[in-house]
Design a binder for these strands. Structure first.
Length: 277
DNA sequence: TTTATAACCTGAACGC
DNA sequence: TGCGTTCAGGTTATAA
């Protein structure tokens, strides 16, 4: 579920509950998910004020006291806002309560690929999870055609795989990589070094618009999500190619292809995204 | 150095 | 109904 737009949406939802609040308590219902959860986390965060909530790539960063609470949703992670009387799910791993709210915030992650950890706020950008991440796709001062060209020009990897590399550009996941390449009319198997300057100049705004459109629709789904305790998800996006194998392209009617790159499914229109463009 | 693969873990969907 | 197989929106360690 969580690529950049979903993480942004979840972070904004957390903001409405958490901003200006103070942590009352944190309960760890298991000691580890993908990595160990710092055992001192409940002690360190208790009674501390929540200053800001931000997103970096697919990470949610919460400035609490002098600490950064770092959250990553992995493949199946969710943040749920529940009343304290609601039964726990067996995959509710971390429970946050706030000083002046009856709502509990629950970190639920069945596959346990998510991350909950701490860093000193002053040093959060140097944290091993964050320090090597590339520019944010919406940052036009760092994610430029010149930068992108330099990253791609020597690589023989398919552009689809390169878009998933968080060191090149932050936050793009498997769904929006396929969607952005469709919008830019670039074949997913084209090697990075073979992209022309005009293709690169198409791809940057295609990535930005794909992500922004998803944020805009994800924003409405979060409210549904909260109100219905997770029954409604983020799946109502209208994809052009993702998960549409053997269905007609919305642009030209050609059947959408599905291929696997780096063990990840890729979807594209062979007519709109020719390999020799 | 760059690229490809396996692994982490659970649940849902599907075929038999 | 039950069992086995496949697949899933992420990331990283290891192998090639």
């Amino acid at each position: 579920m969580p690529e950049l737009p979903e993480v942004e949406t979840v972070m904004q939802g957390m903001r409405t509950h958490w901003l200006g609040e103070r942590i009352k308590s944190v309960t760890l219902r298991r000691p580890n998910i993908r990595f160990p959860i710092p055992p001192a986390l409940p002690t360190v965060l208790a009674n501390q004020p929540i200053h800001t909530l931000t997103r970096r790539s697919k990470y949610i960063l919460v400035h609490i006291g002098d600490q950064a609470l770092i959250l990553h949703l992995g493949m199946s992670g969710r943040i749920l806002f529940e009343t304290k009387t609601t039964d726990y799910d067996k995959h509710d791993h971390v429970i946050f309560t706030l000083k002046s709210s009856e709502i509990e915030t629950r970190f639920r992650d069945p596959r346990r690929f998510g991350i909950v950890t701490l860093s000193a706020w002053d040093a959060v950008n140097d944290h091993p999870l964050l320090r090597d991440i590339g520019p944010e796709p919406f940052d036009n001062t760092s994610f430029t055609a010149q930068y992108f060209t330099k990253k791609l020009e020597k690589s023989r990897s398919p552009i689809k795989t390169l878009l998933l590399n968080q060191k090149i550009v932050a936050g793009v996941g498997n769904i929006y990589a396929s969607e952005a390449l469709f919008r830019a009319r670039i074949h997913p198997e084209q090697q990075g070094k073979d992209l022309t300057s005009s293709q690169i100049k198409r791809l940057i705004p295609a990535i930005q618009q794909t992500l922004q459109d998803a944020i805009d629709s994800g924003g409405s789904s979060l409210r549904d999500y909260v109100q219905t305790n997770g029954e409604l998800g983020y799946f109502q996006h209208c994809f052009d190619v993702y998960d549409r194998a053997e269905q007609p392209c919305k642009n030209c009617g050609t059947l959408i292809n599905r291929k696997v790159h780096s063990n990840r499914a890729t979807y594209f229109c062979p007519t709109c995204q020719p390999l020799d463009a």
